[in-house]
């Protein structure tokens, strides 16, 4: 059994109106329940706005702190889930539901398993 990171990328500063957002959040809630029922859920949540991020970088013995986010761009990581899945096909099956519900680009990556 491997663990996969399912990342959702969303455009900065675009907050859908409640009548759009509410059903999406409800469906994501159902999906989370399904993940839990299947024993696949590890962790998942949405992130606060990317503009609230803080970036640290070690430089010449000091650690520089700057107002984030680290990567410039119009889209940022908006939230993620960590799931357990036997293989990529199973992970893609879950990720497909995230894509259908949110309409956002969804990225799937396997964890390397360093943590054992």
């Amino acid at each position: 059994m491997a663990q996969y990171l399912i990342s959702m990328y969303q455009p900065d500063g675009v907050v859908p109106p409640p009548e759009v957002l509410a059903p999406v959040m409800a469906q994501l809630g159902v999906l989370t329940e399904d993940l839990k029922a299947a024993g696949a859920f590890v962790f998942g949540d949405g992130l606060t706005d990317a503009s609230s991020a803080t970036v640290l970088k070690a430089e010449e013995g000091d650690v520089l702190i700057t107002d984030g986010p680290y990567l410039e761009g119009k889209e940022h990581l908006g939230g993620f889930d960590i799931i357990e899945a036997p293989d990529l096909d199973a992970a893609l099956g879950w990720a497909r539901r995230f894509a259908e519900i949110t309409g956002l680009p969804i990225e799937v990556r396997a964890f390397a398993g360093f943590a054992g």
């Binding site: 491997a2 899945a85 036997p86 293989d87 990529l88 096909d89």
Partner: peptide, 10 residues
């Protein structure tokens, strides 16, 4: 190998 693409008949 890394992404866990399965060797199986769909």
């Amino acid at each position: 190998r890394d992404a866990g693409i399965p060797f199986r008949i769909p």
